[in-house]
Write a protein that binds this DNA or RNA. Structure first.
Lengths: 147, 147
DNA sequence: GTATCTGCAAACCCTTTGCAATAAG
DNA sequence: CTTATTGCAAAGGGTTTGCAGATAC
């Protein structure tokens, strides 16, 4: 398999499902993959507007599920009343360590999780597709400024 | 420390925060702890109404955060447009294995996760408070009926 | 008595959807 | 040309909130 970038993956996913590769869809995926950060609909919308792109929020809401289906992005967490997303394509699978006070997030990977995941699949008769682990607590800075 | 039940914990939490132990609050915590299942606001509301309790949804929405603060329950996942909760008090910490097709959920515990959590805390300088792990895939039944 | 709590209804906010115009293939 | 997509504005649905009356302490 030769190297494909996120645009290729998206185009292929759309073609397979008889959907069209529109300028709006290309603009969204380009914008999302222009950073490595988590994002949400509002911030994505504002970023695009600031760059002069005139996409509507309705389109963003309609296109994000396509990117999730294509396994280019995924939902990470629901907070402050709305969903947050992260990149999947081009990013090694990772888990999150979250500071419950300042909300800072560190990413980590641990090969033991994969092993555990496989064992659990056998124990419960599941065909395991993946896992997500979140570790939470107070980050170094917030520990010190604890009240 | 002698044994305290969820009502004692809640009463103490309320007293500490200059809040009051009302009939509505007692009814809610009794209802929640009458089963071991995950729940959401709507199902809790309906269950209480069916039992003739005349609490309002507004009160449920106001009381649930108090139970979360008291570490009696916690948010588990956001799905179908609303939050789902589970018991913490009286339940050994556990993680979830979720079928992505039928949404069936199995609970499991694995002592290695605690070890990993501690190691990560040291690596990132976090004071770790806990973790959540979710493993997802297809359960035994759904594997067989795969299209 | 005083501060908190409840129920109601309205407000809020994120998300979805109907529709008519537009555009991809 | 045919069918999918867009933007708009309105609708939807879960959650929050202002307020006046009720109640815990």
């Amino acid at each position: 398999m030769e190297s494909r970038n996120e645009l290729d993956v998206f185009r292929q996913h759309l073609k397979k499902n008889h959907m069209r590769y529109t300028p709006e869809r290309e603009q969204i995926i380009r914008e999302i993959f222009s950073t490595h950060d988590h994002f949400d609909v509002e911030s994505l919308y504002l970023r695009m507007r600031q760059k002069g792109l005139t996409i509507s929020k309705a389109s963003i809401y309609r296109i994000i599920p396509l990117l999730v289906d294509a396994e280019l992005i995924s939902e990470v967490y629901y907070e402050d009343g709305h969903m947050h997303y992260e990149h999947i394509f081009g990013h090694e699978h990772h888990c999150h360590m979250r500071c419950t006070r300042c909300r800072r997030i560190e990413e980590f990977t641990d090969p033991r999780l994969h092993l555990i995941e496989q064992e659990l699949g056998e124990r419960f008769g599941f065909q395991v597709k993946g896992h997500n682990m979140e570790v939470y607590g107070l980050c170094g800075e917030c520990r010190q400024s604890e009240s």
